[in-house]
Simulated assay, not measured.
Amino acid sequence: MSVLTDPKKIALHGGKYFLPQLSVDCVILGFHDGELKVLLLKMHHSAHWALPGGFIYKEETVDDAAHRVLEERTGLKNLFLQQFHVFGNPARSSSKATVEYFKKEGIHLDKNSWLAQRFVTVGYYALVDFAKAQPHPDLFSDACEWVSLREAEDLFMDHSDILQKALETVRLQLNYQPIGFNLLPRKFTMPELQRLYETILGKPLDRRNFQRRMLAYGILKKLAEQKKGVAHKAPFLYSFDTQRYRKALAAGLDGGW
């Protein structure tokens, strides 16, 4: 499959290559300095930031399109990527706004253009290692950056709604699937893991109950090492048992938060 890299060809002739009126949008989440962050694009000719997304080639699956977008924006492959919702509000995009946007790009579209039609988008979320991701803008954006969830407001089109729905889904996932493998470094402390869960859930968790529960799942390995460079008693480091973690992703966990 040859990937189109010419913005003008995409705009004027993309209807020959892409599925009509269907797209994907990806909520890519990373954890850094005790904060959950989302990867956003700063669009050309716009004050708005947008979620990474793209069109679906006629010869690829919807899942493959989402994985392609994830790799193009982060440089990462074979990561946990989950479809979570379909967004199909008839008013989610504007034919007039699309024509005006491409006019600023120096590309003339008429109202019957494939790009000026109503689009339904399939939402995916990905949990990635902040340190390993290499953000890269797409053909229609000036920048691709990590943005704190506190600052991710007033996004392009309905992307704020897509982001909120993704966060709701991740919070629900915590009730029956593990989280952290792609968000934390290979070695981490129990307080760091708890901080991740508290950040996602938006509420504090009891330290003893959290530790007892996480250890009971059997997905963690306590290491002989302790965290260096801390002021007080150095906490032990942990890592995920990859095999048991993946089994828990497939089979689920008991209980909720």
Rank of each mutant, 00 (worst) to 15 (best):
D6A: 09
S239E: 14
P204H: 03
S160L: 04
F181P: 03
N112Y: 05
L220N: 11
L12K: 12
H48A: 10
R171L: 02
W146S: 12
L22Y: 08
L220R: 10
R212L: 14
V86E: 07
Q83W: 00
A216T: 06
L115H: 09
K58W: 06
S239W: 00
Q243W: 05
F188Y: 08
F188D: 08
P20T: 00
C144W: 03
T74Y: 00
R207M: 08
L149G: 10
H44R: 11
D64K: 07
I107S: 12
H48D: 14
Y176M: 12
A250C: 01
G202R: 05
S113I: 02
D254H: 07
K58Q: 15
L12M: 11
M1F: 07
D254G: 03
T74D: 01
P7H: 04
G75N: 06
S2T: 01
S93Y: 08
D6T: 05
Q226L: 07
A133F: 02
S160N: 12
L249I: 13
L41H: 09
K227Q: 15
V147N: 09
K16L: 15
P7D: 07
D25V: 04
M1V: 02
L172G: 15
M190H: 11
G34N: 01
A234T: 13
L193Q: 09
S239I: 04
F240V: 10
Y197I: 03
Q226G: 08
G256H: 13
E153I: 02
K227H: 12
G30F: 02
E192F: 03
Q243P: 02
Q117M: 04
N209W: 05
N182L: 00
M43Y: 07
L193P: 13
R171P: 12
G229D: 07
Q134G: 01
L196K: 12
K96I: 04
A251G: 03
G252Q: 02
M190F: 10
L201P: 09
A152T: 02
V24M: 07
T61H: 11
W49I: 00
G54A: 04
N182K: 00
F119K: 13
G75W: 01
Y176H: 15
R213I: 02
G252Y: 05
G15K: 08
L40Q: 06
A250P: 03
A66I: 02
P204K: 02
P90C: 06
P52Y: 01
G106V: 12
S141W: 06
D25W: 00
G75K: 06
P90E: 07
L183K: 03
K104R: 15
G53H: 07
D63K: 09
V120H: 08
I10G: 11
T199P: 07
E168A: 10
C26F: 00
D254K: 10
P20F: 05
K233D: 07
G202W: 05
V170I: 14
N78P: 03
S239G: 13
L253P: 10
L155M: 13
D25G: 10
M43P: 03
E105F: 13
E35W: 00
H44D: 11
L201E: 09
S113Q: 05
A66M: 05
